[in-house]
Nucleic acid binder design. Structure first.
Lengths: 252, 252
DNA sequence: CCCACTGTTCCACAATGTGGAACAGATGCC
DNA sequence: GGCATCTGTTCCACATTGTGGAACAGTGGG
C-alpha cells in the first residue's frame, strides 16, 4: 500500500471502529495487524481524541475529534442539529416560524425550519431552493460572501418573483452594502405577496458566512411595527449564538 | 510529543484544514512542518478520502471519510438529517405527526419530529425524554437492544404514566418478545390518555438498533381501524429506508 | 487452581519517514 | 521577454521511528 504506512493503519483502525466499539484483540483481528501495533495506534488516537476508551471497560470507540473535523468538512450537516434548539427558542420568543439556509449558487437552500404552530402559518421550504435576491436570508448570504461569489451572483439578470421583487442590479448592490453594514436584512413581500422575513448571518470560526437564520410571517401581522427592532435583535443574537456554538464544536 | 509521530502529524494537518481549505505551503506554515512532509501526508490522506484536492486548484480540504467516521461516532447527529425527508414522506402519506428517538438509559430521547399540520395535533417532544416502557419507540428500542441493556432496563420498577400504562415486568418482557418478532410496536393510551403511537426500529450497518421512528396521533382518530395494518407497514418501511440510507452513508 | 483469554509493555532491529535540496510550473512585475 | 518569487512535487541519503514477537500482569470461567 502506498503512502505513509502508520497513517494508513491508523485509519484502518478508525474504520474498523465504525462498525461498533471493540477491544485491542478484536481490532487486531478486524485489521489484520499485530496487537502491539494496534495498541500503540490506539494510544495515539486516544491522545488525539479520535478514539475514546470506555470507562470500566477496555473497549474503544470513535471519539469527538472526528465529529469536530466532520463538522468542519460539512458545515451544513452539523449546523442543523446545533441550530435546532436556538431556532426553537426564537420561535418561542417571537411566535413566528424560524429557519436556516445556505447559499447555493444564486439561491438559498433551506436546511431546517421550526414552526410556531400558529393557525395561520407559511409553507415550509425545508429542502427547497429560492432565489437569493428575493429573501432576507439570500441577501444576508450574498452580503457577507466573497467578492467573487457576489460577482458571480450579479453576473446574470434577476428574475422577479412577484410585483415587489427588487431586480435592478444597482439597487441590489446598494442593498447588499447596507445589509453588510447593518448585520441583518428585511424583505417585505418581495418573494411572494403577504410574506415578510428578517435574517442574520452565521459565521464559521474562520469568519466566513456559512448560513443564515431567518424568521418569517404573514405580512398582515409580521412584523408588528412596535416590535420590529426587538425582532431584529433577537434574530441577530440567535445567529451569533449559533456561530459561537459552531466555534465551540471545533475547539478541542 | 508522545505516540506515533506520523499519526499525530496527519491529524495536525487535518485540524489545520478545519479552519478552511489551504495549499501545501499554507498548511506547512500552519503546522510548522516541512513542505515535503506535508505533501507526503496529504497524499496519504487523499488516498484515504480524509482530504480532497479541489479541481482546478491545488487547494486541499477535508473529505468525506471524516463525515462517514463521524456519522459512526455519533449516529444521533447524522440521523436527523438523513431521516428528515423520510419522516416528511410518512407524514404526507399518513397525515399524522412522525418522529425519531434514541434510547437513553430507560428513556427515549426524541431527536426530531415532523408535524402533519393538523388542526388537532399532539405536543412536540423533540429534545425531551419519555420512559421507554410507555411509548412505542421505547418498546422497539428495548426489544432490539442487547440482553445487557434490557436487563439494565428491567432491573428497577416501572412507573405508570397514566391509567393504562403497563408496568408489570413479566408482561413487559412478553411484550418485548412479540415486538422483536413483529418488528414494530403499538401503544394505546399508555403514555397519556388520548395518545396512540406505532414505532419501528432503525439499525446501523452492524445490525444494532440505534433509533426508532414513530407516528402518533389522537386516539379518537388514530389509527383508523381499517388502516392500522397499512399504517404499520408504512412505518416499518420508512424505518428500513432510513437504515439503508445510513448504510449508504458509511460505505466509501 | 488452572487455563485461556485479555491489554500492556519492552526492546532489538530494520524499514519507514524525514526533510533539505532540486526541479518544473505559474504568476506578477519591470 | 526576462527575471524574481512564489508554488507543489519529487528525490534520496540518512537516522529515527515504528515494528512485532515475546513476556508479563490481570481477569474470568470451569
Amino acid at each position: 500500500m502506498s503512502g505513509v504506512q502508520s497513517v494508513n493503519r491508523a485509519f484502518s483502525v478508525l474504520r474498523s471502529l465504525s462498525t461498533g466499539p471493540a477491544g485491542v484483540s478484536e481490532i487486531a483481528e478486524r485489521t489484520d495487524l499485530p496487537k502491539s501495533t494496534v495498541a500503540r495506534l490506539l494510544s495515539t488516537l486516544v491522545d488525539l481524541g479520535a478514539v475514546e476508551q470506555s470507562e470500566n471497560s477496555s473497549s474503544y470507540g470513535l471519539g469527538e475529534t472526528l465529529i469536530e473535523l466532520s463538522a468542519a468538512a460539512s458545515p451544513g450537516r452539523n449546523i442543523v442539529s446545533i441550530s435546532r434548539p436556538h431556532l426553537q427558542d426564537l420561535v418561542d420568543l417571537l411566535e413566528e416560524d424560524a429557519g436556516i439556509g445556505v447559499l447555493e449558487g444564486r439561491g438559498v437552500y433551506y436546511l431546517d425550519q421550526v414552526n410556531a404552530g400558529q393557525e395561520v402559518q407559511l409553507r415550509d421550504w425545508t429542502g427547497e431552493t429560492v432565489d437569493a435576491h428575493v429573501v432576507s436570508s439570500g441577501l444576508v448570504l450574498l452580503a457577507f460572501s466573497s467578492d467573487e461569489e457576489q460577482a458571480a451572483a450579479l453576473a446574470d439578470p434577476f428574475e422577479p418573483w412577484c410585483e415587489r421583487s427588487v431586480t435592478d442590479p444597482v439597487a441590489i448592490i446598494r442593498r447588499l452594502e447596507s445589509v453588510r453594514r447593518d448585520g441583518f436584512a428585511w424583505t417585505m413581500e418581495e418573494m411572494a405577496e403577504g410574506i415578510n422575513s428578517v435574517a442574520a448571518p452565521i459565521f464559521n470560526p474562520a469568519g466566513s458566512v456559512i448560513a443564515a437564520i431567518h424568521v418569517h410571517g404573514p405580512a398582515y401581522r409580521f412584523p408588528d411595527p412596535d416590535r420590529r427592532d426587538a425582532i431584529t435583535r433577537a434574530v441577530v443574537r440567535t445567529a451569533a449564538r449559533v456561530s459561537k456554538r459552531l466555534a465551540g464544536s471545533l475547539q478541542p
